[in-house]
Amino acid sequence: MLAKRIIPCLDVRDGRVVKGVQFKNHEDVGDIETLARRYAREGADELVFYDISASPSGKVVEPEWVAKVARAIDIPFCVAGGIRSLDQARARLFAGADKISINSPALENPDFIDELAREFGSQCVVIGMDSRKVDGRWCLHQYTGDPDKMRQAKAQTLDWVKEVIRRGAGEIVLNCMDQDGVREGYDIEQLEAVREVCSVPLIASGGAGAAAHFRDVFERARVDGALAASVFHKGVIAIPDLKSYLDTSGVEVRL
């Protein structure tokens, strides 16, 4: 049986791993390669590198550190942040990234999803979404890496999920903004709703604070993977402990 994936997310700003609370007040938590190696060794199933400075300022992820990470680790990883052209995507994939994730650029130009899927295959096209409830409906937000530029997008989350799958997305990472960084548990309600319309792998993001939160999101929202940052970076949860907890709770994991 396929294992549920535990995915540390490394938010990257100016070549360092950082973490903010609800997208603000970023603090430095370490060096990219060192953390990547540590997580691979501890049993992470996959890593996501999210360049949160890239999208708002128009910068792109530097392939140099992508290649360094690819050399250092032997588990899959995804690179996100400011990828707006096929060439930028190609540079990252050919440097050794297994997947690329796009968020704001997909909302600006949905055809870009089709182009990426045609060129590189759906398996490496991940769509990231930042979503929260506004007036009773789940709505998307753009440019969430920069508090000054962040804004609500026009599309509603559930419609967008269906559209990106139709266009060739191979995986969706749903970042539930109201839960992000506060460690009170994943947004089960929103993830359950998205799961109902999502036929591709779905990764939960935002809110992990305890091992039980992972068990809950796998059991209740049936997500394929759970992403977390601060609980791993700050040592609140150790991945080997989390895996053995999930295993004894009846969740299929890679030990």
Binding site: M1, L2, A3, D45, Q123, G170, S199, V200
Partner: peptide, 15 residues
């Protein structure tokens, strides 16, 4: 096969 409740593509760690 895309069965109901079976996610497509097959992505992840399998035994």
């Amino acid at each position: 096969k895309s069965e109901p409740k079976l996610v497509w593509p097959h992505m992840g760690w399998n035994a």
